[in-house]
Every structure is written in structure tokens, then in C-alpha cells.
């Protein structure tokens, strides 16, 4: 099994890892192994990384810092196919406004901001449910996913990257916000593909097929 592909779902105690792993397994070929791990070795040995996350920014960063995997994670994010999901997108940024301000991993320059719905009194918070992602770039991870497909979201903060060229998808909840980012070997999405039925499964399939370029 020399050419078996190892995909590590990073476990730092924050998130519905089982659902993410199950969705990836559902579309994985027989020579792909999905492993859930909190060990730096499993991150270093992986061919591709899935970085999920749920909960508050402060708790996520605390869990990451305490897990002693930040360094290995940063290394992986710079060289391997890397899929960030929900908080796994937000903590890649420089800084989050959540919890009175939290410094994040700073892999991508930009902020995480709270929705301002003051001019949209009819809209609810959190942004919870199925909304459309408008694909703003042609990317391998959007392969076979219809333009403006609906994905399942649940969040109250969104990312605002400094470099607008890395925006891969946009969604509207009141105002338009960045719902997916693509930069080199890294792709990150605010929605939960593991809970987004066919569109989400296709995204996982595309990720498993992706060489990071």
C-alpha cells in the first residue's frame, strides 16, 4: 500500500470531527485513509490536511496553543493540500473581533468581523441555514459544484482578507461576505461541507482528488 493517501483531520478538541471524517470517508477511494488525530506526527505524515473547528475563536486558539501542534499545522498549511472548515477558516486569519479580540494564526492576512445587521432588522443571527456560495474563481474544489449552490452555514463572524484576490466564494446575509478563500495549496470555507448534502460531498471529493495546485 505504498501509494496509499493519508488525510488527517486535525483534532484539537473543537468541533464535529466525526461528521467531517464520515463525509470524507463517504467519498474517499479505497486507497485513501482518513484519520482523526491530534498528534503532530500524523499531521507531518499526512498527504493532505482537513482543519475543522467550531465554537468561539478564543477557545479555538487556546485549544490550538495548548495542543502543541500550531507549528506543525503552520508548516502543513504552507505545503500540503489544506482544507479549513468554519472556525478552521477563521483562525487562519490575523485577528478576530470575537471575545473582545483574539490573535489568530496569521497564515492569511486579514480580520474576522461580526455581522452588522443594523440595517437588516428582519435578518437573524447566527447566520444559520442553507445559503448560496457564489464562486468567484475557477478552482479545482468547485469542480462539478453548480454556481450559487447552497451550503449549510452556522456562524456569527466572517473573514475579511486584505488581499481580495484570494477570495474564492461570496455569500450574502444582509451584506456580501467572503465565504471561501483559496491561496496556493490552501482552501478554506465558512460553510460546513460535511452538512451540505451533495454539494458538500462533492467538495470533499474534489479536495481528496486535489494535488494542491
Amino acid at each position: 500500500m505504498a501509494d496509499q493517501k493519508l488525510v488527517t483531520v486535525i483534532d484539537y478538541g473543537m468541533g464535529n470531527l466525526r461528521s467531517v471524517a464520515k463525509a470524507a470517508e463517504h467519498v474517499a477511494g479505497s486507497n485513501t485513509r482518513i484519520c482523526i488525530s491530534s498528534k503532530a506526527d500524523d499531521i507531518a505524515a499526512a498527504d493532505a490536511i482537513i482543519f475543522p473547528g467550531q465554537g468561539a475563536a478564543k477557545a479555538c486558539m487556546k485549544a490550538l496553543n495548548e495542543s502543541n501542534i500550531s507549528h506543525t499545522l503552520m508548516q502543513a498549511a504552507s505545503e500540503k493540500p489544506f482544507l479549513g472548515i468554519c472556525m478552521g477558516l477563521q483562525v487562519l486569519m490575523t485577528h478576530s473581533q470575537e471575545n473582545e479580540g483574539v490573535d489568530c494564526l496569521d497564515i492569511l492576512k486579514g480580520d474576522v468581523q461580526q455581522f452588522d445587521l443594523s440595517t437588516y432588522p428582519e435578518l437573524k443571527m447566527p447566520h444559520m441555514g442553507w445559503n448560496q456560495i457564489h464562486q468567484t474563481t475557477d478552482h479545482p474544489l468547485w469542480h462539478n459544484i453548480e454556481q450559487d449552490s447552497r451550503f449549510y452555514f452556522v456562524h456569527s463572524y466572517f473573514v475579511s482578507p486584505h488581499d481580495k484576490h484570494i477570495i474564492a466564494g461570496e455569500t450574502t446575509h444582509g451584506n456580501k461576505f467572503t465565504s471561501a478563500i483559496a491561496q496556493d495549496n490552501l482552501f478554506a470555507i465558512q460553510a460546513h461541507p460535511e452538512k451540505s448534502a451533495d454539494a458538500g460531498l462533492q467538495l470533499f471529493k474534489n479536495f481528496l482528488d486535489w494535488n494542491g495546485q
Binding site: W130, N131, F153
Partner: peptide
């Protein structure tokens, strides 16, 4: 383009 109402 906006959030869909859900059926559960």
C-alpha cells in the same frame, strides 16, 4: 440570493 427558509 439569501438564506433559505428550512423544512425540518
Amino acid at each position: 440570493m439569501s438564506l433559505a427558509k428550512r423544512i425540518i
